[in-house]
Amino acid sequence: MSLVNEFTKGIIRENPLFVLVLGTCPALAITTSVNNGLGMGAAFTAVLLASNIVISALRKVIPDSIRIPSYIVIVAAFVTMIDLIMHAYTPALYKALGIYIPLIVVNCIILGRAEAFANKNGVGASIMDALGMGVGYTLALVVMSGIREILGAGTFFGIPVLGASASPALIMILPPGGFIAFGCILALMNKLQQKAS
């Protein structure tokens, strides 16, 4: 039961993007299409999962005083792998995400989970934690990129959804649109939380 709990907490209650407001840079930058959002979410989840497993397995070996540099090196190694894999197998996505793939290494969520969870818990719990957080972050990216793609380009996953007569608001896929969409979502989350409490 507790393993299920570790998984579900990341999706809604402690959603890294909408509740903890971490990992905002890629969330604003690459959410111009659902395709990019999903790709980023998948790459992020893979890195988080791999680094959580290794850090949790090595938690008794790594001396406390140098744990942060060790975590950074472990995360950077996995980011490099993902970077090379995506370059080889998904060149179009690699080009669209660009600099934000190597920048997964400085995503606060990954270091945050290493420090707050993986170095205190076993491998099994850490896997569930990473999957929950990863899926939660991916869902958040998809929600945001869905809103921006529909309003800004009139498509969803590249398929036209608005009628031919509707002209999309280009600003939603330009930088200001990212801030507006994220601001609206956070305001909505605040509203829901105030209602609940």
Partner: peptide, 9 residues
């Protein structure tokens, strides 16, 4: 509900 992050965004 706009206090904090939303209004900043």
């Amino acid at each position: 509900c706009f206090h904090g992050f939303p209004i900043a965004l």
